[in-house]
Design a binder for these strands. Structure first.
Lengths: 358, 358
DNA sequence: AGGGTATAGGCAATCGTTTGGCGATGTCAA
DNA sequence: TTGACATCGCCAAACGATTGCCTATACCCT
């Protein structure tokens, strides 16, 4: 009946090491190590079936788990992957990260994540902190299309790939955002809507750049070029989308469609429309991007471009694993699909002439 | 001009160790270690000011960063905190995690997070995986009010605290959810609305339990008890909230207010109201919980109960740090506040009699 | 019988850091 | 001069796992 000692660390009561196993099984610690690791293969160093059995049994009975620090110190591999995202509070990035985490676990890697808030200074600091933990590789979800950050990491010898956003000359797992923009544009054009505005998003994110380009190009090719002043850049969350839409409406332009490169901006736009006495999906078509779960169940369900974000995260890990195996994988580009809902489908042909406040 | 060697690990080009510094500075490695660690204190083992200077300079020049594995192996402390949440795709948990991460970094800890999806089997597996990484402590954000999971962790000697959800007899950092429920109820009663339904949420989460209790108690004490069949439990995201509201409306009950214990359920409820030809905030008051950023900018801005989630995460880390310092901290309870918006404020007294489909 | 060769497994160094215990040098007082 | 003490810093043993090298036994073939 001793007072239970206060352990300074996690579940450290047991402290079963290779030595414990070796002693109980009556073999050398190196033998245990070999058995536990090279279950199969390693023709050079075999153990007799009985020994293998015995060691395996003992290890299981004692609930042995290898010490990650010791293993990592010796092997020079941490089995860690560092992940940097703009913010985890964006459900899209959170979903991507869940995919990363699942795939990483499947491959025996653990991950840790931090957010850069798309702030260059913070990005440097967070990256330094992460690298100090010696990950085997990094995944960057916050690539700035125009920064030299990635180039510098590469030069340092950091192994990494990108996710969500791409950048010229770097390995990435993304969706075909240009195609997504096209899909949105085609959908609107099919509905006979030719007066569109674009809430384009962050001008340094390939997602915003590509989606906007796909959309704008398609409209132009259809003979309906979108005026420059109707393509707005900025950090568009719901509040931002609302404000941007307000400013467009205030300018009194002819308009019957809005394309936002993310759903939250689109929701904000719907709010601005309502304030102006217009009904999204009836007077003005609104189309978002990412198809977050929320969008389907909004009061006015939102038309959006779906991408497989969880899968994207998983693909990024597959790239990393291949990289770590010395392979030379190619970037992954997932296909987006359009999900049509009330926010565009309700706009009748009669309204196609466009709404103008002027 | 040699071909750059492909490094198997992070930024491992340099590989500056204590030995490197010791050799360049002409002292023993142990001296370097002591200087780098006990900048001050350790009366037993001092170094001359010149030596300290020299070593510090060399370390800085060589950009020395200690090897976490070696350090952890030797000291038996990982400086890691494991975090378990239901899901990171919930912006509330993501926000809490950001707070955790920031505070942890400030205290020299790094964190890793994983999600249990509120699935008991997965919870066990994820926890085992995390503990295998030997964290100094854990933070659980997915406490099940009725499970013995936490008790078992405690018995194993795992050091931990809870966040977001509380549980009897365990250290936690939460907001006063009962009070939050009260605030919601008082707000509605002040508006003269006495026919309310509750979308209560997960019956095993203290958040749902306490918020609902605070709300229901207040209505009862005001002389307007809420019928049992108008208190619905379940996993309420937007889609779930929509369905739940639909079923309530289908039952044709007298109703002029709805309290949802999270904003997304509330948004779903607004959708269901619209489908039924009702206007949230005009015919029926809708009040959510958490005040996620989205809520303020919805087409119909949502009244909600605000809690400081980022701060909550930080408080949880403070608790852990105290715990690791051998202190015996008390649980933290943050105060919620009500943010009134159009979704309730627009309901006129005239409507207070309540809407009934029957 | 002798040599060749698997087979099974032990030995010991090593990864980078921490830390208790000493030793060497210097200072000061008696 | 000698002893008492500080002061400064080295030595070496850990922490737990991995891995190249070595040895001992047994088996096989001619």
């Amino acid at each position: 009946m001793s007072i239970p000692e206060v352990l300074p660390s996690g579940a450290r009561g047991s402290r079963v090491t290779l030595r414990t196993i070796a002693e109980t099984a009556g073999v050398h610690v190196s033998t245990v190590s070999r058995i536990l690791n090279n279950q199969l293969g390693d023709s050079q160093h075999t153990a007799s079936p009985e020994t293998v059995d015995r060691v395996l049994t003992v290890a299981a009975e004692l609930r042995y788990t290898p010490d990650p620090s010791a293993k990592s110190l010796r092997t020079r591999r941490s089995s860690h992957i560092g992940v940097l995202v703009p913010t985890l509070t964006d459900i899209v990035l959170a979903t991507i990260y869940e995919g990363i985490e699942d795939a990483a676990e499947r491959h025996g890697y653990s991950t840790y994540v931090t957010n850069s808030l798309d702030n260059p200074v913070r990005r440097e600091r967070q990256t330094a902190t992460m690298l100090a933990r010696h990950p085997d590789a990094m995944i960057f979800g916050d690539a700035d299309f125009h920064s030299d950050f990635l180039e510098r990491q590469r030069r340092k010898g950091v192994l990494f790939c990108l996710v969500s956003r791409r950048a010229e000359g770097f390995l990435s797992a993304t969706t075909d955002d240009y195609r997504g923009g096209q899909l949105a544009a085609e959908h609107l054009l099919n509905l006979g809507l030719i007066h569109a505005a674009v809430l384009a998003g962050k001008p340094f994110a390939s997602t915003a750049i590509d989606r906007t380009a796909g959309f704008v190009d398609t409209f132009r090719n259809a003979g309906h070029p979108i005026p420059k002043q109707l393509i707005l850049y900025g950090t568009f969350d719901t509040a931002g989308g609302r404000e941007a839409m307000q400013s467009i409406l205030a300018a009194g332009v002819n308009l019957n469609a809005v394309f936002a490169t993310n759903d939250f901006a689109a929701i904000g736009a719907m709010g601005a429309l309502r304030d102006a006495g217009l009904v999204a999906g009836a007077d003005v078509a609104v189309i978002g991007y990412n198809d977050v779960p929320l969008s389907a169940s909004l009061p006015i369900p939102l038309t959006s471009i779906y991408s497989a974000h969880n899968q994207m995260g998983q693909e990024a890990v597959e790239l990393i694993v291949k990289l770590l195996n010395g392979e030379k994988p190619a970037s992954v580009l997932l296909p987006p699909t359009l999900v049509a809902r009330e926010s565009t489908l309700g706009v009748t042909a009669a309204r196609a002439a466009g709404y103008s406040r002027a």
